[in-house]
Design a protein around this nucleic acid. Structure first.
Length: 487
DNA sequence: TTTTGAGTTGTTCGA
DNA sequence: GTCGAACAACTCAAA
């Protein structure tokens, strides 16, 4: 028997928080005692990447099922959210609106506009925390951290051991049911061609999938995380990133589950993993203070960097045809599954930036389009870190050798063999540098360089020297105009 | 207030 | 083959 209410409802506006458990906005709406009206207003912020749209479709379907199981309905609407919320208030007489606070500039502008419009109608919009563990703008406001370790240290002291809120076992819904779109109308899924056909085998979007993934990681991954996280063939990653991105699980739930697991705390794998959550917090901290993090280099001298315009090389990189097997494996894993191992992301990003001298923003944009975990803070922060243009950046002289990285972190070649099958028959000794393999070995493995697999797009030694020159130029530009930012 | 040492993820070179 | 140094410049916190 479903409970409903005829009184003015409380609206919960779902955003990047597609879950029912540990949901502060939902809990606050429940506390109001009013009947609930749950809505999602669809895609409107920085245009969603194609992979994110695929995930969003399935995540919304999942949330809709969870709500239906409790006797309610998820109202889907499209349009500027201020307009849609105002319509919903007029149609239903809703008395209050709750949402999770956005942490990116677009989301905040949207929220501001909605607040203003609702205020005119005499309705309060309440924004609740939950996307991050701590309020990222509130950590040392006015003097943001630029180095991760001290940031994370101070976070660890601020973190409260408060447990996450349980999933509601029942909800009291409003009897008012406004018009709603059907999810299919939004056409979020790709068609002709359906490039996401392979995604289903790798992911289960939605709150239940997130919980199962966390459980699996705690049972089988966490203990070996510190040792295995750098080995892409091993699948030792938590693979929680898209679930966190869409808020199907909260960072507080993850933090709590990991710290209350059996593993010894303070050292070891649990600590190593929590640091990764810390980087997520750090990137949101940066985004709070540098709202155009995804576009503009934090270090102004990078405006003078001698980038190259090379559409053909960019395309080869996107397709996984650079001639560097580890990078190509990663780019193809990305295309096939919407995700890439973290170690390989660094090497692939480094190759685009330092070997090809293509602006990091172009790589950021490709990742934004193709990653199911594309996140405004993590994606931008990560690319700026590799470029050396960000906070606590990689030193300019740290130029990954993609071949060495392959031999070191994929010694058996299993990762390359999986994603670059045309090299699978090469022995581990040569699989990371087919261009160095003797002709007989290549022939035996069925590899014809330049035909079945490309020659390296650029020779490493040459590219390294060229990158060092480019960085030297940017550094001299900085010395020439040191007061640029300080007026 | 000043000083000091450390800081996610590397590579290369020469002893 | 292994090992340490060099590859800058700057932020941050502890002393």
């Amino acid at each position: 028997m479903t409970e409903t209410s005829n009184d003015p409802p409380a609206i919960v506006w779902f955003r990047w928080d597609l879950r029912l458990a540990d949901h502060e906005a939902l809990a606050a709406a429940e506390r109001s005692g009013r009947g609930l009206l749950l809505c999602y207003i669809g895609p409107d912020e920085r245009p969603l990447g194609a992979a994110s749209r695929w995930w969003l479709h399935h995540s919304l379907a999942s949330l809709g099922r969870s709500i239906a199981a409790l006797g309610g309905r998820l109202i889907l609407r499209r349009g500027p959210s201020a307009d849609v919320l105002a319509e919903l208030v007029k149609e239903t007489g809703a008395a209050e609106v709750h949402c999770s606070a956005a942490l990116d500039a677009d989301g905040q502008a949207e929220q501001q506009a909605a607040w203003k419009r609702l205020d005119e109608l005499g309705v309060r919009l309440e924004c609740h925390p939950g996307v991050t563990l701590l309020e990222p703008a509130a950590i040392r406001p006015g003097n943001p951290y630029r180095v991760f370790t001290p940031f994370w240290k101070s976070c660890r002291q601020l973190l409260s051991p408060e447990p996450p809120l349980p999933a509601p076992r029942r909800l009291r819904f409003s009897s008012k049911l406004p018009r709603a779109d059907r999810l299919e109308q939004w056409a979020l899924l790709p068609h002709r061609p359906n490039w996401a056909a392979g995604f289903e085998a790798h992911w289960q979007p939605g709150e239940q999938g997130a919980a199962e993934q966390l459980g699996l990681f705690l049972d089988t991954g966490l203990a070996s995380y510190a040792a295995g996280r750098d080995v892409p063939a091993r699948r030792a990653s938590s693979r929680l990133s898209p679930h966190l991105r869409f808020g199907e699980i909260s960072p507080r739930q993850v933090y709590h589950a990991v710290t209350s697991s059996d593993l010894q705390q303070g050292t070891g794998p649990a600590e190593t993993f929590l640091r990764q959550l810390g980087w997520r917090e750090f990137n949101y901290h940066l985004l709070a203070h540098w709202p155009d993090l995804s576009v503009r280099a934090m270090r102004p001298e990078f405006d003078a960097f001698p980038w190259r315009d090379d559409a053909a090389a960019l395309r080869a990189w996107q397709r996984g045809e650079t001639g560097y097997p580890l990078v190509d494996a990663g780019m193809r894993e990305l295309w096939a599954t919407g995700w890439m191992h973290n170690r390989v992301r660094m090497v692939a990003a480094s190759l685009l930036i330092k070997h090809l001298l293509i602006p990091w923003q172009q790589g950021e944009a490709w990742f934004w389009d193709t990653l199911v975990d594309a996140d405004p803070a993590n994606n931008a922060g990560g690319w700026q870190w590799v470029a050396g243009s960000g906070a606590d950046a990689a030193p300019y002289f740290r130029i990954f050798n993609p071949t060495t990285q392959g031999k070191k972190f994929d010694p058996s070649g299993a990762y390359v063999a999986r994603w670059v099958p045309e090299l699978a028959a090469l022995a581990p000794k040569y699989i990371h540098e087919p261009s160095r393999a003797p002709a007989a070995i290549l022939e035996h493995a069925g590899v014809v360089l330049g035909e079945t697999y490309p020659w390296p797009l650029v020779e490493h030694g040459f590219a390294r020297a060229r990158a060092l020159d480019a960085y030297a130029l940017a550094r001299s530009a900085k010395r020439a105009a040191p007061l640029q930012e300080s007026e």
